[in-house]
């Protein structure tokens, strides 16, 4: 459950960050979406940290956020999908899997 919480928290964070950009583009519903997604993300983080180490949770959450926003950029904004990006994404995911196996 804790790891599921970290995963969902990461996804919510990506949505929240996307809405910062939407707000800058005057899509005002972002003002409602942001507190909800960020609030939920942090709550799930807190929940996950009751059972897992905070360094692990924070690291993986940051990793999911970075991978998620990069992938969203690749899909929505046609950002480049070069081998370097894919390599770093793989490093992040492999590290996260490793940490999960250890926990």
């Amino acid at each position: 459950m804790a790891w599921t919480a970290v995963l969902i928290a990461g996804v919510l964070e990506v949505i929240g960050v996307m809405n910062i950009k939407r707000l800058a583009m005057k899509k005002w519903d972002a003002l409602i979406i942001m507190p909800i997604t960020f609030g939920l993300s942090l709550s799930l983080l807190s929940y996950a940290m009751q059972t897992l180490s905070m360094a692990t949770v924070y690291g993986v959450w940051t990793g999911i956020g970075t991978v998620g926003s990069t992938v969203m950029g690749m899909i929505l904004y046609n950002e480049p999908r070069d081998w370097k990006r894919l390599l770093f994404i793989s490093m992040i995911l492999a590290s996260a899997v490793g940490l999960k196996l250890m926990s």
């Binding site: 690291g59 950029g73 770093f88 590290s95």
Partner: peptide, 23 residues
Amino acid sequence: LKAVLIGTLLIGVIGLKKVSSEP
């Protein structure tokens, strides 16, 4: 081992940000 994995994860995050340009 945990420190190493957090380290590689961090390298991945920093590397990904460094090779990505801000739109």
